[in-house]
C-alpha cells in the first residue's frame, strides 16, 4: 500500500455576469451640501469587497478623495434596481453603473464650479484632493465643498448622477442555436499537486499554482484575498462538501457541521498565484473581477491530478475516499500515470 503523487491541470474561460432576460445594474450618486458623495446601490456586499471597489470607482471618476465617498447598499426596496450580487457580476456590472452615475454627477459639479469661477467647465479639472482648478492655473481653484454649498444654496442645483449598465437580452438564433450572452470573459489556469493514499482513498492537496487573468485588479489585495479563499472552497467542493447523502437514503445526508465535512485550517496548502492584468475594454477602469472563478478551476485540476496519481477517473463530486477506493478496486489496483518531463 502506498501514497501516490499526482499533478493535474485545468484552464477555464469564465463569463462575467449572466443573461437570462437582460442583465442591468443601476446606481445613483449624489452630493450633500458639504461636498461628500453617497453612492446608492441595491447590489450588496457579501464580503467580496463590492463596496470598496465601487467606492474606488466613484472617487476616481468624480475626482474626489476616497474618504469623501460613502457607498450605501442599505435597502433594495428604496434603492435603484439591481439584478444582485451573483454570477461574479459586481465589479463589471455594478462598477460600470457607478462609473456612469459618477460621471454624470461630476458633470454637474464642474458646471457648478465653472459658474462660481466664471470660466468654462471644459477648462476645469479636479486634483483628487477635494479641489477644482482651472487647467494650467492651479491657483484659480475652488474646493468641492464650496462648490457643493454654492450649488445647494445659490445655484439651486443637485450635484447628482444616474447610471445604468445593461447587457441586453441575447436572443437565441433559432437556426443555429447561437447566442452571445456575455461580453466579457476572465481566464485562469491552475495546477494541483496532491497525494492519494491507495489504502484509505484519502486525497491530500499539497500545493496549488495558479494564474488568473481578470482585467484590471481594481483592488489587488482584495483580488488576492478572493483567490486564496476561493481556492480553499474549490478544494472543499472537489474533495469534501456535498448536500447529497453519502448513501441512498436522504435521511443519511448531512444535517449540520458535524456531518457536512469541510477542510479546516490544518488542511490548507501553499498556493502560488500570478495575477495577469489585461484591462477589459468594457469594464470599469478595465476591471472584470474574480468572483466565482476563483473556486472553479480547482475541481477539474484535482480530478485530473487524482487520475495522474492512481489512474482512476471519478466523475462525480465530491471525490470522497470511498469513491477513490471503489474505483481503484474496480481497476485492480492503483495505476500511476507517470509524470511528463520526469517530475518524480
Amino acid at each position: 500500500m502506498a501514497r501516490h503523487r499526482g499533478r493535474g491541470m485545468a484552464a477555464i474561460n469564465y463569463p462575467i455576469g449572466m443573461n437570462l432576460g437582460g442583465d442591468p445594474s443601476q446606481a445613483l450618486v449624489h452630493s450633500n451640501p458639504e461636498g461628500k458623495f453617497t453612492v446608492t446601490l441595491s447590489a450588496i456586499d457579501l464580503g467580496q469587497g463590492m463596496k470598496q471597489v465601487t467606492r474606488q470607482i466613484a472617487a476616481e471618476t468624480l475626482g474626489v478623495p476616497i474618504a469623501d465617498v460613502y457607498v450605501d447598499t442599505a435597502d433594495s426596496d428604496t434603492g435603484p434596481h439591481d439584478m444582485g450580487s451573483f454570477a461574479s457580476r459586481g465589479t463589471h456590472r455594478v462598477g460600470n453603473a457607478v462609473a456612469a452615475a459618477a460621471k454624470e454627477a461630476r458633470g454637474v459639479m464642474m458646471e457648478a464650479a465653472a459658474e462660481e469661477l466664471e470660466v468654462n467647465a471644459a477648462d476645469l479639472d479636479t486634483d483628487g484632493r477635494g479641489n477644482i482648478h482651472v487647467k494650467g492655473a492651479p491657483s484659480r481653484a475652488i474646493s468641492v465643498k464650496d462648490v457643493a454649498v454654492a450649488a445647494q444654496f445659490r445655484q439651486g442645483k443637485t450635484i447628482a448622477g444616474r447610471g445604468i449598465f445593461l447587457i441586453p437580452l441575447s436572443e437565441v438564433n433559432p437556426e443555429t442555436g447561437e447566442m452571445s450572452p456575455v461580453s466579457c470573459y476572465a481566464h485562469a489556469c491552475l495546477v494541483a499537486d496532491l497525494e492519494v493514499d491507495d489504502e484509505t482513498g484519502e486525497v491530500t492537496v499539497l500545493k496549488m499554482t495558479s494564474a488568473y487573468e481578470l482585467g484590471r485588479a481594481i483592488n489587488p489585495k482584495m483580488v488576492e484575498q478572493q483567490l486564496v479563499g476561493g481556492a480553499w472552497m474549490g478544494m472543499s467542493h472537489a474533495l469534501f462538501e456535498t448536500p447529497e447523502p453519502y448513501y441512498p437514503d436522504t435521511a443519511h445526508g448531512p444535517r449540520d457541521f458535524n456531518e457536512y465535512v469541510m477542510p479546516g485550517p490544518g488542511d490548507i496548502c501553499p498556493h502560488d498565484i500570478a495575477v495577469l492584468e489585461r484591462p477589459a475594454p468594457d469594464g470599469p477602469f478595465g476591471g472584470k473581477g474574480p468572483g466565482e472563478m476563483c473556486a472553479n478551476p480547482v475541481l477539474p485540476a484535482v480530478a485530473n491530478a487524482i487520475f495522474n496519481a492512481v489512474g482512476v477517473r471519478v466523475d462525480s463530486l465530491p471525490i470522497t475516499p470511498e469513491k477513490v477506493l471503489r474505483a481503484i478496486k474496480a481497476q485492480g489496483g492503483a495505476r500511476p500515470q507517470g509524470a511528463p518531463g520526469g517530475r518524480r
Partner: peptide
C-alpha cells in the same frame, strides 16, 4: 503555525481559506 491552526480548528470560516487568518 500548527498551534495557530489547532487553536482555530473549531472555528469555521467560509470566505478566507484560513490562510490570511493564520
Amino acid at each position: 503555525r500548527e498551534e495557530v491552526a489547532e487553536a482555530i480548528s473549531g472555528n469555521i470560516c467560509r470566505c478566507t481559506g484560513y490562510e490570511p487568518i493564520i
